[in-house]
Design a protein around this nucleic acid. Structure first.
Length: 485
RNA sequence: GGCCCCAUCGUCUAGCCCGGCCCAGGACGCGGCCCUCUCAAGGCUGAAACGCGGGUUCGAAUCCCGCUGGGGCCA
């Protein structure tokens, strides 16, 4: 598709700071970002904070931090500025007023003083007679009521169909008669612009060439197109990406559980995995499931995004996260673990005491059996301190009287080991098992429970080597000195 | 209720635009087997889908119409 080769692509992500950044919004940002980066375009971040009641500064911060965490950077925005700022709508009211006045001057908008009840009554009447609803308000011809503060209403003159070729949905058309004269500036003291007006003015003034946003905005688009035309601005290309749904197939929202990006971050999901998962939710590149950021920039095509909505699937996210966890170089993964030690009940000092080299050796053992960083940190906790408690079932099953006797024998072997390398220890313990006519598992499980408090851990011998002779003997002795089974 | 959108395994999807290579491919999840000191990881393997009805055509998952279902926005 020849996307007007001469013109540089400009896209934007324009969230409202009314709550935490949620995964649906993140996917919109991601698609915009990939589109821009793949085409050598410009990514713009705009804060749509006209809803002063619900907008908060914390939410703005959360949005910026969330995007940064994912490495979805922007070229122009509230923090970095840019040639067409400001990038917060609250700071652009003069622009909206100016454009509204221009429309009024052109006869394309008019002051309206109708009360909601009056409009509702007329709408109902019109519906009863199956009339088009465009002439809801008499203000345009009869003039506004002098005693009331007016809103500004846009006058729709279009006939036939209003439509556009959507980048992902294909041709969309709506009968012009279905679009009624709509408010563009409210009658409140701030003269708050409505969403459609502010967005259209901003997108035009910011030179946005492609508006890529959620499919929930499809009904807004015809009105915005009309505004562009009335204002004499070029109409951008629109692309409406399908919504992310919850398991009940409804638009993802708080009641579906974790929808905030922050929640995933805190649970130890990797930004690489979030990006990988979200991009594949609604887009595919043959049979490829796993992507690096660079591969995505190269392969992503906005027009290849599917038109049907997708359900957020935690299980697949888990799989991808585990995969990216395993792919990461040990040193890097060790660093990512840092924020999670406290939540895992591990003293960061104890981790630091072991040193980076040691940690990098331990990490691959645990990465293979964890889905998240938090899970991984928890699984590693026993390395840094003896288990505070032992799983009672495990203890009953593997630390009985006879098993303690065996444990004592293993202790002896380990105490006398020439060195404490995994291979050496394995040889010694296997020989002991053979001598006693036992399987390795009969010795391994009691030791595992004694050292970790559970029946599950990475392979025993590397774990012994990691813990070191002193810690191992100490933990075995603690069990042995317990009441003797 | 009005307008708009969507429709391939439970889920994400390939295939659909340019009908035959598709008794529909991959992935997650689920089941089985192998490997194995536990748990994972890995390998092999199984069950699992073209919503329904009409057309068009020698031939339709692919084109057209209708229905049904789901969703979004507005009220």
């Amino acid at each position: 598709m020849a996307l007007t080769a001469s013109k540089k692509i400009r896209v934007r992500f324009a969230p409202s700071p009314t709550g935490s950044l949620h995964v649906g919004g993140v996917r919109t940002a991601l698609y915009n970002w990939l589109f821009a980066r793949g085409q050598g375009g410009t990514m713009i971040l705009r804060i749509e904070d006209t809803d002063v009641e619900r907008s908060t500064e914390e939410a703005v911060t959360a949005i910026l931090e969330g995007l940064r965490w994912l490495h979805l950077d922007w070229d122009e925005g509230p923090d970095v500025g840019g040639p067409v700022g400001p990038y917060r709508q609250l700071e652009r009211y003069a622009l909206y007023r100016q454009h509204a006045e221009r429309l009024v001057r052109q006869g394309r908008a008019y002051p309206c003083t109708c009360l909601p009840e009056e409009l509702a009554a007329r709408r109902q009447a019109a519906r009863a007679e199956k009339q088009a609803v465009r002439q809801l308000c008499p203000c345009r011809t009869a003039g506004p009521h002098p005693g009331r503060r007016p809103a500004i209403r846009f006058h729709v003159t279009a006939t036939g169909k209003v439509g556009w070729d959507d980048l992902v949905q294909g041709r969309i058309e709506v009968p012009a008669d279905d679009i009624e004269d709509f408010i563009i500036v409210r009658s409140d003291e701030r003269e708050t612009p409505v969403y459609n007006f502010a967005a259209a003015v901003d997108d035009a003034l910011m030179g946005i060439t492609h508006v890529v946003r959620g499919a929930d905005h499809i009904p807004n688009t015809p009105k915005q197109i009309l505004l562009y035309e009335a204002l004499g601005y070029p109409v951008p290309v629109f692309g409406h990406i399908p919504l992310v749904l919850g398991a009940d197939r409804e638009k993802l929202s708080k009641r579906h559980g974790d929808v905030a990006l922050q929640a995933y971050r805190e649970q130890g999901y990797l930004p690489e995995a979030m990006v990988n998962y979200l991009v594949r939710l609604g887009w595919a590149y043959g049979d490829q499931e796993v992507f690096t950021r660079e591969e995505l920039i190269k392969a992503f095509r906005i027009e290849r995004v599917g038109a049907s909505p997708g359900i957020f699937d935690r299980a697949k996210l888990d799989w991808l996260n585990a995969l990216h966890l395993r792919r990461m170089p040990p040193e890097a993964l060790a660093d990512r673990l840092t924020p999670f030690w406290p939540a895992a009940g591990v003293d960061p000092q104890a981790v630091a005491a072991r040193g980076r080299t040691w940690l990098a050796q331990a990490v691959p053992l645990f990465a293979e059996r964890a889905k998240t960083l938090l899970e991984m940190a928890r699984a590693m906790a026993f390395l840094f301190a003896p288990p505070a408690t032992r799983d009672p079932t495990a203890e009953a099953r593997f630390l009985g009287r006879e098993q303690r006797v065996l444990l004592g024998e293993v202790r002896g072997v380990l105490a006398g080991a020439p060195d404490f390398a995994a291979g050496t220890l394995e040889g010694l313990v296997r020989r002991l098992a053979t001598e006693r006519g036992l399987k390795l598992v009969d010795l391994a499980q009691p030791v595992r429970v004694a050292l970790t408090g559970t029946t599950v851990s990475p392979p025993l011998f590397p774990v012994l080597a990691l813990l070191g002779r002193e810690a191992v003997l100490d933990r075995l002795d603690r069990v042995l000195q317990d009441r003797a089974g």
